[in-house]
């Protein structure tokens, strides 16, 4: 064990938290701690201070956000899995949440923490990209929303100012013509870091794809959208052959969990499998 001797700021409310964030930008924000504590214990992270957000009531719960949903930054995976509104709006996100670690992690870890940790293998991130989620960030200067698609600027780098905190994850309303998908290929069926993840959303109107989101995790420095594939899908019936273009969008690497070759091939195959299943479904329902 390595115990951090660093001080922990414990704000009583969000306003105090933002003031502390502005005053101590070097303090590591701490939500459920399921990632941060691992880094501290292994000695890979030793920040000079922490900012404990766990007690902030303003960051809890799921609220309506127009037609969509606003998931407070302290919303745990277990909470979102059990929430009927999240189940209806983002079934793929619920599916993803169920693959995060196992029960003990889902009970403590937060969706916003997954976003903030910015791991290329963050389980929820491809789905959030596919759903066009937005990240609400706040500072003493005010609040703004960053589209997931613009959040990551490099390996574990976020487009946040040093005084900003993530306060919520916002999900748009589910369009009736949307199909969502999540697939995780990991090292095992629970407690697994992914080798490849796919988050997908297709809007199919009149037999034609009108909007496509295809996002992958664990295949680049941060979770990415496969824009070549997306472009190829739009404007025609679902075509599984679009999966063959995936090589233009992702550049996976070898590491201790898998190989670049495997990741690229599996990304193509699971995307192809999903598209083929959607196409088959469409064909049978139109009959």
């Amino acid at each position: 064990m390595i115990t951090s001797h660093a001080p922990v700021h414990c704000p009583a409310d969000l306003a105090e938290a933002l003031a502390l964030r502005a005053a101590h930008p070097e303090a590591m924000p701490l939500a459920g701690g399921t990632d941060v504590m691992v880094f501290v214990e292994s000695g890979t992270l030793s920040p000079p201070a922490f900012l404990n957000l766990w007690g902030l009531a303003e960051l809890r719960g799921v609220q309506a956000d127009g037609d969509g949903l606003r998931l407070g930054a302290l919303c745990t995976y277990t909470e979102l899995e059990a929430d009927a509104r999240v189940q209806a709006t983002a079934p793929a996100l619920v599916e993803a949440a169920r693959t995060v670690g196992a029960k003990q992690i889902q009970n403590r870890g937060t969706l916003a923490g997954n976003v903030a940790n910015a791991s290329p293998a963050g389980d929820s991130l491809p789905v959030l990209l596919a759903l066009d989620a937005e990240v609400e960030v706040a500072s003493v200067r005010g609040t703004r929303r960053i589209p997931m698609d613009a959040l990551y600027t490099g390996y574990r780098k976020l487009a946040l100012a040093p005084d900003e905190l993530i306060t919520a994850i916002c999900l748009p309303a589910r369009h009736p013509a949307d199909v969502q998908y999540y697939r995780k290929v990991g090292t095992r069926l629970a407690q697994a870091i992914s080798k490849v993840m796919l988050g997908g959303r297709l809007r199919i109107e009149g037999g034609v794809v009108t909007e496509a989101r295809v996002a992958f995790g664990s295949v680049a420095a941060f979770p990415v959208r496969a824009r070549t594939v997306e472009a190829a899908l739009v404007g025609r019936p679902v075509d599984a052959a679009a999966a063959d273009l995936v090589g233009a969008d992702i550049k996976p690497i070898d590491d201790i969990r898998s190989t670049a070759t495997y990741r690229l091939e599996v990304a193509r195959r699971i995307l192809q499998g999903w598209l083929a299943a959607v196409a088959a479904e469409g064909a049978s329902s139109s009959r």
Partner: peptide
């Protein structure tokens, strides 16, 4: 046999 979260459902071959 558990229903496999994130396993791809019917699309898995």
């Amino acid at each position: 046999v558990p229903d496999r979260a994130g396993g791809g459902g019917a699309a898995a071959r």
